[in-house]
Design a binder for these strands. Sequence first.
DNA 1: GTAACTGCAAAATATTTGCATCCTT
DNA 2: AAGGATGCAAATATTTTGCAGTTAC
Lengths: 139, 139
Amino acid sequence: MLTKNDILTKNGLSVTQSRTQILELFLKSNGALSHADIERNTGAAFDRVTIYRTLQTFTDKGIIHQIPTTDNSILYALCRENCEAGHHHDNHVHFICLQCNATTCLADVTVPDVRLPKGFVARQSAMLVWGFCENCKQE
Amino acid sequence: MLTKNDILTKNGLSVTQSRTQILELFLKSNGALSHADIERNTGAAFDRVTIYRTLQTFTDKGIIHQIPTTDNSILYALCRENCEAGHHHDNHVHFICLQCNATTCLADVTVPDVRLPKGFVARQSAMLVWGFCENCKQE
DNA sequence: GTAACTGCAAAATATTTGCATCCTT
DNA sequence: AAGGATGCAAATATTTTGCAGTTAC
């Protein structure tokens, strides 16, 4: 299994404190993180700007991917091994819990194909599902 | 067919310049609009703040719905007739053109159901498809 | 040693809030 | 006339940029 450092060096990135620690956060949470989440969870260890730049770098390299949201923020989550720089293959469904507000990658649930109207050509797709997660089930 | 004023009064909203004009914008474009789009397309006729508040009001009343994006912005599009205040039923696929960047509501393409892992309960879902629209076909 | 990364300061941008005034009903 | 909507000013919050100092290799 790849270590944090492997992931960084494999992508031609030098191993620094902020990168290691932010990457660790992603590895620990199997869900998605926002800039604010990361800021909160690293204490005030790193500058806001460093976090912005790290997220950008990770996205460019295909280490993390962005998850669309309706609340004017961006969520990021780890890519699986098959993502490459500039080319994401995060074709799984993302689940947002209405109770605890966590966003989870359902890595095993593939985004289904849909038939598009004549003239439209699909290149990529994303699917979001809102509801209650395993920890927040309603009875 | 409902006129602009009908839509407003039916929702208990008074008919004002900004609401009429912004609603008209939505009726004209069958796609999605951002706050910036609206600002641009109305000249400097209305205050930024008014646009924020109008979009919020329309969303609350179920006149428009939000479309998730990955670029830290919110897009809005008209709901079909069956949306009610606080309860959106915009269960269609949204298409984003990689060329012209327009977002289109594919009102006839329903978001397919997916089978979720044990313990997850779905309440709502959204699907985004990126590609080339009818006007921007690649040969 | 050198290139790349980080932190700080500041600029630019986006969003929210309070309040006085104006408009719709 | 009364309540709600708007515009303005200002407070917050978010994101980007430039640059000097530091760190990884």
